[in-house]
């Protein structure tokens, strides 16, 4: 399950006064099982990139291959793409419409070709994996749930198709800290089971903790593509790209300004803690 973008460009309203170039010459390969973080200022082209990957829009130039097949090719079957890739939009709870949680989660399986029993299994699995009690919640109306539960049901509705690639656009916006952690842990679990995760977020702490690779877009161009360990080294550059860094990286940076030697690849608290300790004990000047 790889995604490959080859010289992909996208222009909105070409040939009119409203012409805007959203993406320019993007070359990118995302391998099986990666956990990719996508960052950049609002309006840098992140959402456009995601929508191109799931085939909701077609590139103005360039090609996109999923598993080696051009998804905008003449004989490509779109249904195949829908089965392989799941996409969680920002505030996905807006998509809920059915009379019960079970029906809503099953919606995406209608045209999947799965048998009734298989579909039911998938629905149960999806509801349980997002941390809800299947037997309790299955026949409840999704609209009677709390905000956090609605979000989980909406995500279950995408997971039920068991996509091999999961694309998420700011999935933790508006969740409280507990909901955030629970959701991020879920993405990690799915990733461990082999699902490729592509997540757009402004939250550098979350991406530092979970993503293995970071990509930053700037005005439609690929500005940075590196393992997350190295992605946050150049703070001055990140500032111009409008990207924040994790708190651990910030502390390490502040310490280095105080004259302490700190490695520039500290991005998680677990990595920072031993360093803090040795500095505080005075053995690190």
């Amino acid at each position: 399950m790889s995604i490959e973008l080859s010289r992909v460009s996208y222009t909105y309203s070409p040939g009119t006064v409203f012409e805007t170039v959203a993406l320019q010459e993007i070359n990118l390969t995302i391998e099986d099982g990666e956990y990719l973080g996508l960052m950049g200022k609002t309006g840098c082209g992140k959402s456009t990139l995601l929508q191109l990957m799931v085939g909701l829009m077609q590139p103005s130039r360039g090609q996109i291959f999923v598993d080696g097949k051009d998804i905008n090719g003449r004989d490509y079957v779109r249904a195949e793409l829908r089965r392989k890739i799941g996409m969680v939009f920002q505030y996905p709870e807006i998509q809920l419409f059915e009379t019960s949680v079970e029906k809503d989660v099953a919606f995406g399986l209608k045209h999947s070709g799965l048998s009734k029993a298989e579909a039911a299994d998938n629905v149960r699995w999806a509801i349980e994996i997002v941390g809800l009690d299947y037997d309790k919640i299955r026949s409840v109306s999704p609209f009677s749930l709390s905000g956090g539960e609605k979000r989980r049901v909406a995500i279950a509705g995408i997971l039920a198709a068991k996509p091999k690639i999961l694309i998420l656009d700011e999935p933790i916006a508006g969740l409280d800290p507990k909901g955030r952690d629970a959701f991020l842990d879920l993405t990690q679990k799915l990733n461990a089971d082999g699902v490729t995760i592509i997540m757009v977020s402004h939250n550098a702490d979350a991406l530092s903790k979970y993503a293995s690779r970071i990509i930053i877009l700037d005005s439609g161009r690929l500005a940075l593509d590196s393992p997350s360990k190295d992605a946050f080294k150049d703070l001055a550059r990140l500032e111009t790209l409008g990207v924040g860094v994790s708190q651990a990286r910030e502390v390490a940076h502040l310490l280095s300004q105080c004259g302490f030697q700190t490695p520039a690849d500290i991005i998680r608290y677990e990595e920072l803690q031993p360093l803090l300790l040795s500095i505080a004990r005075g053995g690190h000047l």
Partner: peptide, 17 residues
């Protein structure tokens, strides 16, 4: 918002096309 909803349901397998 309508555009977002249309896209979200399409990626879930709704058939508008």
């Amino acid at each position: 918002e309508t555009d977002t909803i249309r896209k979200a349901q399409m990626t879930r397998g709704a058939r508008f096309d």
